[in-house]
Design a protein around this nucleic acid. Sequence first.
DNA 1: TTGAAAGCGCTACCAC
DNA 2: GTGGTAGCGCTTTCAA
Lengths: 344, 344
Amino acid sequence: MVQIPKTSAPTSPAPHSVPTSADVARLAGVSRATVSYVLNNTSAVRISEPTRRRVHQAAKELGYVPHAAARSLRAGHSRMVLMPAPDVPVGPLYSQFFNELQWALSRLDYTVVQYGSVGLQGDEAARAWAELRPVAVLVPGSGLGTEGVAVLKRSGARAVVTLGPDRVEGAHALIMDHHEVGRSAGAHLRARGYRRVGVVVPEDPGLEIFSKPRFEGVRQALSGTDASVTEVSLAYDEEAASQLAARWRSLGLDAVFAYNDEYAMLLMRALQDEGIGIPGDTAVIGADDLMLGRLLRPRLSTVHIDLPSGRELAELVDRAVREPGAPPEAHEVLGATVVHRESS
Amino acid sequence: MVQIPKTSAPTSPAPHSVPTSADVARLAGVSRATVSYVLNNTSAVRISEPTRRRVHQAAKELGYVPHAAARSLRAGHSRMVLMPAPDVPVGPLYSQFFNELQWALSRLDYTVVQYGSVGLQGDEAARAWAELRPVAVLVPGSGLGTEGVAVLKRSGARAVVTLGPDRVEGAHALIMDHHEVGRSAGAHLRARGYRRVGVVVPEDPGLEIFSKPRFEGVRQALSGTDASVTEVSLAYDEEAASQLAARWRSLGLDAVFAYNDEYAMLLMRALQDEGIGIPGDTAVIGADDLMLGRLLRPRLSTVHIDLPSGRELAELVDRAVREPGAPPEAHEVLGATVVHRESS
DNA sequence: TTGAAAGCGCTACCAC
DNA sequence: GTGGTAGCGCTTTCAA
C-alpha cells in the first residue's frame, strides 16, 4: 500500500525522492524493461495481463510520473513546439490565433510551450531556445536572424517558422506584412476623397514592428496622388489624446488612420470632446475590427485583419517536421480588408 | 575549421547530427570534463587560459548548445517554473501581471514556461506538467485539485501555487476572490440609492469562474436590504445586447453591474440606442478599470482591481522553492475599489 | 514472456 | 590543471 495514509494531512514533509520506473519495477516485482513496455503499451511485445495489472497498480500506488527529459534524451528527440512568449500585451486576435494553434498542434500530438524570454536578445535568445531541443520553433516578430535560425537547426529543430514582416534565410515564413493594413486604409481614404491624411503612430516602442509598416503602407497608397501623409505620434493615455486634439485643427487633416481600433477610440473621443465632427471635420479609420468599433458612435470604420488559422500553421509545422529537407515555404498570410462604417 | 563554408547557402541538407560536448572536446583536443568546466565557469577548478580559449573556440565553431534535458537530468533538478497557458483570451490586466512575473522570475534566475494544456482535464493535466519536472508550478484558475497538487509535489515540484478563488490543500495560494468585486459594486450601488439591481452574467462558460462570484458578491452586498438582485444573461455580441435592451424596461432595473467594462460598453450602447438614459433611467457600473471606460460617455464607473505584483509572486515562489518544508502560505491578493465616474 | 545491459548528453567526484 | 568515469531516468536491442 501507499505509505501516506489517506486520512492524514497530505503535507508530508518526508524528503521521499521522486519515484522512478525502477521503483515501480521493484514494487511490481518485474524488471524496468517490463515497466516500460507496459506503461507505453509497446505493441512489439506481449506482456501477460496479470503482469500488466501489477505494473499499473504499482505505478499508481507510487504516483509514478515518467520523466520527460530522460525520455527525450533517450529517444533523441521530443515533440515540443516552442514559441517565445510575446513580451507586449497582445490583443484578442493573437490570443485566439494562438489558442487555435495550440489546439491544432495538440491534435497532431505536439506539445506547445511558450518560453518566456524577457531580456534575451536575438541570437542569445535563440541559443536559450535551442537548449530545450524543441522539434519546432515558432517565432513571432522580427527578433530572429539568419544566425539564430542556424543555431536552432544545428541543435536539431526540424522546423523553424517565423511569423513576422520578413523572411529569414533558412526558415519557413508566415509573412505578416502590416504594410497591407496601411495600404488598405490609405486606399479607402483616398477613394473617399480625403486629401490630408494623418497616421497615428503609437509612442510605445514595442509596437513599432506594427506601426511602422502600417504607416508606410498609407504612404504607399497615397504616393503619386496629391494627398499628403502626416505622422502623428500618440501615447495611449487620455492626457496625450486631449493635447493632440487641442492642436488638431492646426494640423489641417481631413482624415486619420488611427493605427488600430483602440487608438481610434481614444482619438475619436478626444476629437469629439474638442468639438471636431467625425467624419465631417475629420474622418477616422481604425484597424483590427474589434467589437468596440461597432459600439462607437459614429460606428468606426476599420481594417479587418485575416490571420492564418491556427490549423494551417499547425499543418505547416507538421509538414516541415516530417520533411525537414524540404525548402522553406513562405506564405503571405495577412489579409486586410476595409470594413466601411460611419466614421469615414 | 567548421565544415560548412561560410559563403555557401546555409541550407545545408546534410544530416549532420547535433554537436555534443564530446564533439567540442574532440575538436579542442581536451576531455569532456574540461569542456564542462570551461563552459560552466566552474570555480572549483582552474583551467589554463590557452585551454579555455581552445574550448570556447571549438564550441563556437561547432555551434555547440548544451542540452538542457541532459543537464537537468544529471543535476536532478531544473529551474523551470511552469505555468499552464490560460485557455481563455485574457485581458491586459493579466498580460501585464504575467509579464511582470516573468521578468521578476528571470531576475531570480528561473525560466518561465507556459505549457499549453488544451484538452487536458484536472489531474491528467497535472500529470502532464509533472513530466517536465518543474521546480515550481503556478496554476491560475480552479482546475487543480488536492490530488493534482500531490502529483506535482511527489514528482519534485518544490512549490505549487494556485492563483484562483480557493485554497487547495498542500499548495500555496494567491486567493483571488472575485466576490469582492461584486461586493464593491453592490455596496456602491446601494449607497447611491439604487434598489433594483441587475447583474450581467456572460454566457461564455469559460468566464463562469469570474462571473459567478462577482454575481454572488453583489447579492451579498445587497442582502438584508430591500434591494433586489436580478441575474441578466448576455452573450458578447451586438445582437444579444440589443435584444436585451429591447426588453430592458420590462425588467424594471434602476442599476446594473455589467460584469466588466467591455460588457458594460456593449450594454450601455444598446441601452442608449434604445433611448434609455444612463444613469438617469439605469445606472451602469463595470469592472477592471480599462481605458475604454474613461472614454465612454457618460464616463463609466468601474471596479478597479488590484492584482498582486509579479514581483511579489516571484518572491513567494522563490521562498517556497528554497524552503519547501514550510507550510503553504495563503494570501488574499485581490483588491477591489470602486472608481466612481458618471454612469452611476 | 521477461530480464540484463547499453547508452542518450551532461556534470562532478576522484585520480593522476 | 586535466582526464577517466559513474550515473541521472529512460527505452530498446538482444538473450534467455
